[in-house]
């Protein structure tokens, strides 16, 4: 009986934990990279010869540095200085990490 009560209370705890777990979206990096795909190709794999910079499989540190340089204005751009300002450090980190492991 005591065991059953314990099981029920644990189930209740799991229920409570539900919404909190949903807030930390495990697919966030994947979903953010989908914002890049419009110009840079699905998962950062650009159409060859279409004139867009390939971003899949690039080292994470290099991508983070580049995006942050666009954001600060250090690196000249036509549009990326305006797009990069829409994303936080944490989001840029997730984006670069996801792109870096694309083969």
């Amino acid at each position: 009986m005591r065991k059953l009560n314990f099981a029920l209370s644990m189930a209740a705890l799991a229920l409570l934990a539900g919404p909190a777990a949903a807030q930390q979206d495990p697919n966030l990096a994947r979903n953010l990279v989908a914002n890049c795909a419009n110009c840079h190709g699905t998962n950062g794999k650009a159409v060859p010869g279409a004139g867009m910079e390939p971003i899949a499989g690039e080292p994470k540190e290099k991508l983070v540095k580049k995006i942050k340089e666009y954001r600060s204005g250090v690196r000249p751009a036509t549009v990326m200085h305006q797009i990069s300002k829409g994303y936080t450090d944490e989001q840029i980190d997730l984006i670069a990490g996801y792109l870096a492991v694309q083969k």
């Binding site: 419009n38 110009c39 699905t42 650009a46 159409v47 305006q82 797009i83 300002k85 994303y87």
Partner: peptide
């Protein structure tokens, strides 16, 4: 997002290349 977005500084030929590059990539996407 405050501070993000904007328009071209001026009309230019570089972005004509990007416009077609965008089209080919989004069609593939």
């Amino acid at each position: 997002v405050p501070g993000s977005g904007g328009v071209s500084a001026a009309r230019n030929e570089i972005e004509a290349g990007f416009a077609m590059g965008w089209a080919k990539n989004i069609w593939a996407d």
